[in-house]
């Protein structure tokens, strides 16, 4: 089998990728960690120095942090709920035979390919605008007062926009899982008199559980870092009503130039993401062995 020679060749081939990623991970991380213990404001050069956990105390006791944390959880949770429930339903529908499957599939997947800034702006201006948006027109047609989505329910509106972007992803993966479902098992259950509800609960849902877990974990990784959608719709406002952790760190460091405080926030964001990552890695790792 593999000779000593091919072993060392293999090591040589793999090392650029490993070294680059190692550098990419360790250097900035170490810097973030270092800055988070420093007094470092870009507007006040020369006032540096070690401050211990001062930045963390400042960041964690900032009322904006608590609301950002809540908003992050609501955003992730809300989008996950909508996309997973909607995705299961849509995938189940699309798994049935019907005319034009290929076209409908393309239509459903399309939002996933729209860049975040485009989808956020299109929704913000052409649909949610309280004066000339399409929703306002529909509301007026029904005799209702137009609703100013992004001013009155900013977080809810962003959840809606992000859900539209991620529903295709959930649907596609769940559809793949549905297609590997053994139809004979379903037929047998049907013949034995199992109702559609119990067929769904006891055959389909257990079969889907793995795919649903993967959808939840992968989406969570991406949803924790939602940024562009907030930047172009609300800028985190009104107040901090739609500021998530990512946006708060951005505002702290690049808008208020507080590198120390922003870095402390970055470290907190990393810790949060890692909690999710551990579970995801365990699932993917298990699959690698089979």
């Amino acid at each position: 089998m593999a000779t000593q020679h091919s072993r060392s060749a293999a090591r040589l081939m793999i090392s650029p990728a490993v070294l680059l990623l190692l550098g990419w991970m360790i250097v900035p991380l170490a810097m973030t960690l270092y800055f988070s213990f420093q007094r470092y404001n870009l507007l006040m050069p020369g006032q540096g120095g070690f401050v211990g956990f001062e930045n963390y105390r400042y960041f964690l006791s900032d009322p904006a942090f608590f609301s950002a944390l809540t908003n992050t959880l609501l955003l992730v949770g809300g989008v996950l709920f909508i996309t997973v429930v909607g995705g299961v339903f849509l995938a189940m529908l699309m798994d049935q035979p019907f005319w034009g499957q290929g076209i409908v599939r393309v239509l459903v997947i399309a939002p996933f390919f729209v860049m975040p800034t485009v989808s956020a702006l299109v929704w913000k201006n052409m649909f949610m605008n309280p004066v000339s948006g399409l929703f306002a027109f529909l509301a007026k047609g029904l005799g209702l007062e137009p609703f100013d989505f992004l001013a009155q329910a900013p977080l809810m509106s962003i959840i809606l926009i992000v859900s539209w972007q991620w529903l295709p992803f959930a649907t596609l993966i769940l559809l793949t899982a549905f297609q590997s479902l053994d139809s004979e098992q379903l037929e047998a259950a049907e013949m034995d008199g199992a109702s559609p509800v119990s067929r769904f609960l006891f055959i389909m849902l257990p079969h889907l559980s793995r795919a649903i877990t993967v959808v939840i974990l992968i989406q969570t990784i991406f949803l924790l870092s939602i940024f562009a959608e907030i930047l172009v719709t609300t800028n985190g406002g009104p107040g901090t009503a739609s500021t998530n952790l990512t946006y708060l760190v951005y505002a702290q460091s690049l808008l208020q130039f507080d590198v120390g405080g922003g870095s402390a926030g970055g470290v907190i964001a990393i810790i949060l993401a890692n909690i999710v990552a551990i579970f995801l890695m365990r699932m993917i790792g298990k699959n690698l062995e089979t």
Partner: peptide
Amino acid sequence: KDVLMWMLSTKMLPPVGVLIP
């Protein structure tokens, strides 16, 4: 397997954590 998993773990790093550096 460890190398692969480790590479994947770098993808889990939230970008905002390294934005400033």
